[in-house]
Design a protein around this nucleic acid. Structure first.
Length: 706
DNA sequence: TCTCACACCTTTGAAGTGG
DNA sequence: CCACTTCAAAGGTGTGAGA
């Protein structure tokens, strides 16, 4: 790579609202991510019986894995009956008007389900928390990026992804191959796209440059692979493609597409979660993998002609624009070629080199000599986390399908399964404060083998902090490939940055919140974005007309911020320490922790990541923070100290001593606001708890699916 | 910077055909 | 009944004009 250690700087920027990746030793970037509860099942490829016992499966793995529920670990609920607190028949059977489920579907489904079981409508809520991962399953996931070569080609030029109002697919498609899974255990695979930094970019003089502070972040949505959940064996048999994920710049999008800001840099992430069903998702450990080469800048129209050409050359849908085709481009290129030819004949040799000017501009970006290079904030361990975890309507409907199945309504169940088997699973936005996502860290928790690479991406600069780069590791010298060699040492592909996210305790009264009219009144913004929730959005007041699904997610976010839950999680955490299963999990690198608990244990940082040279390296502002940067040498090299870097966003999250950063304070304030808003609904919690308790031990079954 | 209509292309699935 | 082919519709592309 072209990064020099000395060029690496640590961002002093406090945890960005957008979150930042937490890194851990050995390339894997373990970030304690908090995810929020939403409890739906996706029945795809699952038998009705499995649907009936979805939750039960959570207790007793479908594979026969012995998963002993530990009620003590879950102070709130532990029913094994999916129907217990999430009863019902399906509400909507008619196919959605669009291939993407909306949260509205979820709400409707859950509402109907509740009605069907004569539960208090207002008490509609997700399935009770399930016992996650105490299954004794030991796996060692290794994830490789498919089409890495192509991704690198784009990355070197500065990948651009077109976003449109109607939604646009990514190209190259995000595909991964997973190995090392437990063959019989079930996994849920997801991906999301997070802001790579706090910058807005512009394409000037054939290169990307920082053009200021980023616009308010768009609502976050997570995409669940349609085949989820499937067994490890099934996942390992094929290439896992997320090609159906669509990008949009339409903030009002109701399809569940991933909403991005144009001219902003993003980093796709892959999440691997071992869970039998969606209901367990929020409480399961997320293994997050980040492939630096998949970083891109969202655009409404291509800026770099080379990117355009690369797309045309490789995307079958764009064949019509290839040179061999008869498209307009051919004519244009022919014309350009002719012009170039004629002009070259007239120009002296010294000037003719100008043709390569663009090349240089682009190529230089990755040059170690470039001053811009020094800005790379690989060490900017800003706590990057999936700070959002939205509830896919598909999952809600799926859960409803399970409920329907439970009610012997096979037709309904089948319908629901059919309906959601082929759609994208949109999640709706809501974001948690960084604190909530960063908890403990275990340097040895993640196998290096699966996450040995993936280098830091771009750089940081004043007013523009790189944070999505999960890498807390220093840049690798161009001449000094990482431990695993040039990109592909142990594997054909470099391992991604990986992080292990924590499960969080479920806010028991999520749905009750959802139906609290007073909570979201007065606004007209249909989207209650996380931004708005945290005061960074345009809308400070949720709308009464808000899409129920979005509202739901917002509720989840809010609920998750409730100190009460944090405390519960803390208790849970302690209790779990007693559990030998948990210990085993910890030993294997999987940790649970209280998502919102501070202080946090910093992770060990290692410098074994590699980075794919990218044009993005040049998008940094001329003002380098290198010299003055508090960048800690400890961060630049392998670090196993909790003190990490004082300027690290991540460190600020991990260490109580650093929690006093301004940004952290702001986030705390935001949390306080949300909590205040939740107080009015806190009474609902007791109801929820009671319900869960009533349903404890009411189920069994297995996950004989498929 | 963004949106839109457009031509060109692939993908998908239903319908048709033959063994 | 199955496998294969054909066909049309749906939908994924980048383009370029216009806002």
């Amino acid at each position: 790579m072209r990064y020099e250690q000395g060029d690496v700087t640590c961002s002093t920027t406090p945890p960005s609202p957008r979150g930042a990746p937490e890194t851990s030793p050995g390339s894997p970037h373990k970030m304690q991510s908090s995810f929020h509860p939403f409890l739906l099942q996706r029945p795809t490829d699952f038998s009705v019986s499995s649907l009936l016992t979805a939750n039960a499966a959570g207790a007793n793995g479908p594979t026969g894995a012995t998963t002993v529920p530990h009620p003590a670990a879950y102070p709130f609920t532990l029913s094994s009956t999916p129907i217990g607190c999430y009863p019902g028949l399906l509400p909507k059977l008619a196919p959605p008007s669009h291939p993407y489920t909306t949260a509205e579907d979820v709400v409707l489904a859950t509402t109907a389900a509740a009605h069907h079981h004569h539960h208090h409508p207002g008490m509609v809520r997700p399935l009770r928390p399930l016992q996650p991962e105490d299954d004794g399953v030991v796996d060692d996931p290794k994830v490789t990026l498919e089409g890495k070569d192509l991704w690198e080609k784009f990355h070197k030029l500065g990948t651009e992804m077109v976003i449109t109002k109607s939604g646009r697919r990514m190209f190259p498609a995000y595909k991964v191959r997973v190995m090392g899974l437990d063959k019989k255990a079930k996994y849920i695979l997801l991906m999301d796209i997070v802001a790579a930094d706090d910058c807005r970019y512009k394409f000037h003089n054939s290169r990307w440059m920082v053009a200021g502070k980023a616009d308010p972040e768009m609502p976050k949505r997570m995409y669940i692979h349609p085949d989820s959940p499937s067994t490890g064996e099934q996942w390992m048999q094929k290439v896992i493609s997320f090609h159906k994920l669509k990008l949009t710049n339409n903030i009002s999008d109701k399809h569940g597409f991933t909403i991005l800001n144009s001219m902003h840099k993003y980093q796709p992430r892959f999440h691997l979660v071992r869970a039998n069903d969606f209901a367990k998702l929020p409480y399961s450990t997320f293994r997050t993998y980040v492939f630096k080469e998949t970083e891109f800048i969202a655009v409404t129209a291509y800026q770099n002609e080379k990117i355009t050409q690369l797309k045309i050359d490789n995307n079958p849908f764009a064949k019509g624009f290839r040179d061999t085709g008869a498209g307009k481009r051919e004519k244009k290129q022919a014309l350009l070629a002719a012009q170039r030819h004629s002009s070259e004949e007239k120009r002296p040799e010294s000037i003719r080199g100008t043709d390569n000017e663009d090349e240089k501009l682009l190529d230089v970006v990755g040059s170690p000599e470039s001053p811009l290079h020094s800005l790379h904030p690989a060490n900017s361990i800003t706590a990057h986390h999936p700070s959002w975890f939205t509830l896919p309507a598909a999952m809600a409907a799926a859960t409803a399908a399970a409920a329907a199945a439970a009610a012997n309504n096979t037709l309904v169940a089948e319908e629901m399964r059919r309906r959601f088997s082929s759609m994208q699973h949109p999640f709706h936005p809501f974001v948690l404060p960084p604190q909530g996502n960063v908890a403990q860290h275990d340097a040895d928790s993640e196998p290096d083998s699966s996450c040995s690479e993936s280098g830091p991406g771009s750089s940081s600069n004043p007013g523009c902090n790189k944070h999505s780069s999960p890498s807390a590791t220093p840049e690798r010298s161009p001449s000094a490939p990482g431990p695993s060699g040039q990109h592909h040492a142990s594997n054909d592909y470099p391992s991604p940055d990986i992080s292990v996210g924590p499960p969080i305790h479920p806010p028991p009264n999520l749905l009750p919140y959802l139906y609290s009219p007073g909570l979201y009144s007065g606004a007209t913004n249909p989207l209650l974005t996380t931004s708005s929730l945290f005061g960074t959005g345009a809308s400070a007041h949720p709308a009464t007309s808000m899409n129920p699904s979005l509202l739901f997610n917002a509720q989840l976010a809010l609920a998750s911020q409730n100190p009460f839950f944090s405390h519960a999680y803390h208790v849970l955490n302690n209790q779990q320490q007693q559990n030998h299963h948990l210990k085993a999990a910890i030993a294997s690198g999987v940790h649970r922790f209280a998502p919102y608990k501070l202080p946090l244990v910093p992770s060990t940082l290692t410098n074994n990541s590699t980075s794919v040279g990218s044009a993005f390296d040049a998008v940094l502002p001329s003002l380098s923070t290198r010299g003055s940067s508090p960048s800690s040498p400890n961060v630049q090299t392998k670090v196993k100290s909790p003190s990490v870097s004082p300027k690290s966003d991540k460190s600020s999250l991990l260490s109580p001593k650093l929690s006093a950063s301004s940004s952290t304070l702001n986030e705390l304030k935001s949390m306080e606001k949300m909590v205040n808003g939740l107080k009015t609904n806190s009474a609902n919690f007791s109801n929820y708890k009671q319900c869960d308790e009533n349903s404890v031990g009411s189920s069994d079954v297995n996950g004989n699916n498929k």
